[in-house]
Nucleic acid binder design. Structure first.
Lengths: 229, 229
DNA sequence: CCATATTGGTACAATATTGGTTCTTACCTG
DNA sequence: CAGGTAAGAACCAATATTGTACCAATATGG
């Protein structure tokens, strides 16, 4: 945007601004930047300065300069922005779930339909058949939480949860936890799932959210316990 | 931002515009584009330029040119790249923020540092200077919520919020809201931001979370109000 | 089926735009 | 002062755009 500061902008500053526009999405792949002379005017800098900034960005691989034609964006910001999600720690992951899932329960009460709850019901049964099958339980558990998200009818939230689930499946700690899931823990989870489902069916948003918090707290405990061994 | 229309459009620019129309869904599969001569008129370019743009799009597989007949859209917008996230409605977006941001406040109380809060403080000041500058306010507001997320030190949550912010910036309703932001609404927001910051500084997680909920409720109201006009 | 309108395909020369380069002047910092 | 950086201007070379005219393929309507 137009910085109203009368401060003099150097080549690196301008490079940073343009770089940010690209990462931010205001300038997308294949977009052509304004001509150097126009940029010079809008940023209040000399053409040489703009030129230096653009050269920097070209060396960084953000941009391609084609003589006689223009300067073009050559950067899929996805790579950079998808990266952090792969490095998420299990604790970060738990915090994210703590943020999302209780509220998802509330939304599920608002938007959920009978068929959603029936599906979750059948998943509960499946999980209850897996008291001695940690892997099978984990799969059903993932499906349960996914079904819960689905019942909100909120595509954005579903997408976010899916992203998280992806991380979760690639996560070593969590994988380790699967092995440490004993019958007693699984039973606890199952009871909590049932309670959540009941609260959804009776349309009690806060109760559902609270049980979900408990549920996540239990999960967090078993996570930290597993990481200590 | 606004200068896109004042600038003369080249073939690549037009290609980018049409490509975006297709990805966005405004132009759907098998739709026929207007004749080149009409496009030339609407985009204010010569026919040769339009022609070059369409040829580019044909090479990319977005479009098929049939001599004597017309130019047709041939593109199933990639499920992967378009993602549900681009089609998120403002209401879905608000629900996602309702889920995330109050809990982010709690985490900020846990992990936030002095410098984080100082940064948010300066952003508050910046916003307070923008009572009559909706666009400037919106920028600062985005930065504030980003800074809040940063203070949790949770890369995953920060990433999620960034994704949401990206959607938000490309969202027409929200853009419209910028225009309807009056001085009074901005003042309300400013007061709420200050309150949140204070609660963070005094390490009161629940109070911060609750004010954030209020804040989002206010935002949701002004959103629905704007959409009714 | 044919006449006509519409649409894309092509060619070419004049003009405009854009990045590439160089030079001079001015300013600031160590 | 010396050295680096930026402003500003002038000019060059590469590329793009324009405007026009005419051709070929397809669609439309009697």
């Amino acid at each position: 945007m137009t910085r109203r500061f009368e401060q003099k902008l150097g080549a690196v500053d301008i490079a940073a601004l343009v770089r940010r526009e690209i990462s931010k999405g205001n300038l997308q792949l294949h977009d052509r930047l304004p001509p150097e002379r126009v940029l010079a005017d809008t940023y209040g800098a000399a053409r040489g300065t703009i030129r230096k900034a653009l050269t920097l960005l070209e060396e960084e691989g953000f941009v391609e300069i084609r003589p006689g034609s223009g300067t073009y964006v050559v950067h899929q910001p996805d790579e950079a922005s998808v990266a952090p999600i792969d490095n998420a720690t299990p604790l970060e992951l738990m915090d994210a779930r703590f943020a999302l899932e209780p509220h998802i329960c509330r939304l599920s009460v608002l938007h959920g339909r009978r068929t959603d709850f029936d599906r979750m019901e059948s998943l509960c049964s499946r999980m209850e058949d897996c008291v001695n099958d940690p892997v099978g339980f984990s799969d059903a558990d993932t499906d349960f939480h996914r079904a819960l998200a689905d019942s909100t009818r909120n595509g954005l939230l579903i997408w976010i949860l899916d992203q998280i689930a992806t991380v979760r499946s690639q996560d070593d700690w969590t994988r380790m936890r699967h092995l440490t899931l004993d019958a007693r823990t699984i039973s606890t989870y199952n009871a909590q799932h049932r309670q959540i489902l009941n609260a959804l069916r009776t349309r009690e948003p806060e109760r559902a959210a609270n049980i979900m918090k408990e549920h996540l707290e239990t999960a967090r405990l078993s996570l930290t316990r597993a990481s200590e061994t």
